[in-house]
Design a protein around this nucleic acid. Structure first.
Lengths: 146, 146
DNA sequence: CCCAGCTGCTGCGATCTCGCACTACCGTGC
DNA sequence: GCACGGTAGTGCGAGATCGCAGCAGCTGGG
């Protein structure tokens, strides 16, 4: 059984695919000590100046509450640091600690060959795939706003 | 902010898109009394002869344990019924009750206009989008097996 | 400059997820 | 026809999710 045969609509195809991808990512990262979710967080926070919790939530497309608890976990782990945002005292800027950087580097190393295999197996240019995801994203967003 | 600007890879684009889609689906179904996950389950079980728990798990791309607890929930709700599988006594066949059918019909009604808006907003044929999702699915599966 | 309403964030808690370990059953090899 | 490795399903429990409500701190209208 290759394809998801039961699905009625594009959207649930997408949803099932995401579940499968999530599991595959977790598996690929297994030895690195990070889950797929965490890897995503680290990737976002790695950028210059870090991010605020709400920026992080927007990037991950997850509720702020969820992100908040994830961040707490990563702080306890010593991988994320929190500096008060000079321009808004309600908020704060999150950045990776050196330990967090190291963990992300390790995970990237485990992740790279997996990603390469996926891209090689695609059979179409990555950008084309990304473009389609983009369009779906846009369409979903527009439909949700209506 | 339309696009997910932080993402490093196709796979995490996909992952974030799935989160957004999930939230949008839940929102679209809000008044129907079903969540997106549940709607997917009902859609699968609606087919003739129902499905076994493991077939359901395969369709949803979720661990069997998770599916098991979801099914228990839906049974308690009186929407799903369990008949012992005549050919394998370890297993069982799950089907929708009339109440479950009714709930699904209600949800479909709430869902249809949303789906229509998404498909209209796509800007490309649905089949083309589905095809790309297919290819990603295949590539991820192949990469995970390696 | 102040207050009304808004936004960023988090504590709490009900609910859900899913790995582990286990049972019941199947199928193959002998 | 029996042992035995494999598969279907689930109970349990640690941990994760995320809606609600609440608290700072921001911001704009008067």
């Amino acid at each position: 059984m290759r394809r998801i045969p039961e699905s009625t609509t594009l959207l649930f195809d997408l949803w099932a695919l995401a579940n499968a991808t999530h599991a595959a990512l977790d598996e690929a990262l297994r030895d690195s000590g990070l889950t797929a979710d965490e890897f995503a967080v680290y990737s976002v926070l790695r950028r210059p100046d870090g991010r605020t919790p709400s920026e992080l939530a927007a990037a991950m497309q997850l509720p702020a509450t969820t992100v908040s608890s994830v961040v707490r976990r990563l702080e306890q782990r010593g991988h994320v640091e929190r500096a008060t945002d000079p321009t808004d005292r309600r908020s704060s800027r999150l950045t990776l600690t050196p330990a967090g950087e190291a963990a992300h580097a390790r995970a990237r190393k485990a992740f790279r060959p997996f990603l390469a295999r996926v891209e090689a197996g695609l059979g179409i240019p990555v950008d084309r795939a990304r473009d389609v995801l983009d369009r779906i994203d846009e369409a979903v967003r527009a439909a949700a706003d209506a």
